[in-house]
């Protein structure tokens, strides 16, 4: 446990050294925040209370999305490229023989990275959004706490999905195509482009049940206090459920891959 804490700290520190990249990312998040805020304003002007949100909630959703984009790695990134490079170069064989668990090790670095990016890339865009637009910030400090818990679960679900995608590099030789595809699906089905509660009919029901919903839609609903009481418990159960299922799937795939490496010698 001590080891993984140290790994997480080093993940945090590593991203903290990319100062220019962080500032550049904040700038880009802010620009996208403005573009989406204007389009949502036009949309909610036409249909107030669309998807059960009022305009303020919709705008809050926009800026939450920008604030969480880097932390939850909704477009992919983080450990993914590095792990894929190690698989491609064969260095992964070394990792597999080390006395640490591969999945836990990478999850720890991801948690460290996510914490830095939540602070470094989330706070400023959210602050700018709150200055320019009227956002619905939670009144109760307890909601902030639930929100943070939900974000941690979101990071874990996001990690589990991308871990599966990265492991595909064992069979695909060049995994960047799949990573890109996974990033695009994530943007769409997390609600980043359009909140999932605006998705109509069956499509909406399916989208809200998929793991990507756990990465932005659910934390946003917790933040907006759309999920309270039993609903809040349901939200956490939904996120935790996907987390467990996907992490377990990652373990299975990892052991299959390990056998492949052992047999083929990397």
């Amino acid at each position: 446990m001590r080891l993984y804490a140290a790994v997480a700290v080093s993940g945090f520190k590593r991203y903290a050294t990319y100062r220019v990249a962080t500032v550049a990312g904040v700038f880009t998040n802010t620009v996208f925040g403005f573009i989406l805020a204007y389009t949502y304003t036009a949309l909610w002007d036409e249909r107030p209370h669309l998807g059960g949100y009022d305009l303020d909630q919709a705008l809050t959703f926009v800026w939450l999305g920008q604030a969480l984009l880097a932390a939850v790695a909704l477009m992919g990134g983080g450990f993914q490229e590095e792990l894929q490079d190690r698989i491609r170069s064969g260095d992964i064989a070394v990792d597999l023989y080390r006395p640490v668990d591969l999945q836990s090790w990478w999850l720890a670095t991801e948690l460290g990275r996510a914490l830095f990016q939540l602070l470094g890339r989330g706070v400023v865009p959210m602050g700018i959004g709150a200055l320019v637009f009227e956002l619905r910030l939670p009144a109760s400090p307890l909601t902030w706490l639930w929100f943070l818990l939900s974000v941690v679960l979101a990071v874990c679900v996001g990690f589990a999905v991308r871990y599966l995608v990265s492991l595909a590099s064992f069979w695909l030789l060049d995994g960047t195509g799949l990573s890109m595809l996974s990033g695009l699906l994530c943007l769409f089905f997390s609600g980043m482009i359009l909140p999932l509660n605006v998705f109509p009919g069956q499509l909406g029901e399916i989208a809200r049940a998929l793991p990507w919903a756990a990465m932005l839609q659910v934390p946003a609903d917790v933040f907006l206090e759309e999920r309270r009481g039993a609903g809040l418990l349901g939200a956490f159960a939904f996120q935790a459920g996907w987390m467990v299922v996907l992490l377990a799937a990652g373990r299975v795939l990892q052991s299959v891959a390990t056998r492949k490496v052992v047999v083929q010698g990397g």
Partner: peptide, 25 residues
């Protein structure tokens, strides 16, 4: 080649999903 095909499909989907979001609006 496989990766290339997936990537091209992914790129088609990329813009596709953006427009699907607009159509959903």
């Amino acid at each position: 080649r496989t990766s290339f095909l997936i990537m091209t499909l992914g790129n088609l989907l990329a813009t596709g999903l953006d427009f699907v979001a607009i159509a959903l609006m």
